Amino acid sequence: MNSAQLRAARAFLDWSQSDLAEMAKVSVETIKRLERTAGAIEATKVSTLRAIEKAFEKAGVEFTNGDAPGVRLKAKR
């Protein structure tokens, strides 16, 4: 995950930084710091990133990687 993906995922869901922090059970300051990070988010605990990913996945967000990292909403079944 990179900072642009993090911001884009929040935008898809219309979540504030506080909303994401609450859903992932991390501090708002952590979200702010991660969103300011240039490029890939690596300078944080794996458990923190996983908590953020899980919050997004539960809300229907899917992260894409490879040649074109991005974010998309999962198709509703």
Rank of each mutant, 00 (worst) to 15 (best):
T48Y: 03
A11D: 04
N2M: 12
N65L: 13
A55Q: 01
S16A: 15
E62A: 12
G60F: 02
K45P: 08
W15D: 01
S47H: 08
I41R: 07
K74S: 07
P69I: 08
A21F: 03
I52S: 03
M23W: 10
L20N: 08
Q5D: 14
K25I: 08
V61K: 01
M23R: 11
S27I: 04
E35F: 06
L49P: 00
A40N: 12
N2V: 09
F12Y: 06
M23F: 14
V46N: 13
T37L: 03
E62H: 13
L6H: 07
G70N: 12
R50V: 11
T64H: 14
L6A: 09
K45A: 15
E62V: 15
L34G: 00
A9P: 12
G39Q: 02
R10I: 14
I52G: 03
K76Y: 08
F63D: 08
F12C: 13
V28A: 10
K45V: 04
G60A: 05
S18M: 10
S3Q: 05
T37E: 10
P69T: 01
V46Y: 01
A9F: 00
R50E: 12
E42N: 14
L20K: 08
A21L: 11
K25Y: 13
K58L: 14
I31R: 01
A4Y: 12
R7N: 03
T37D: 07
A40S: 11
F56M: 09
K76L: 12
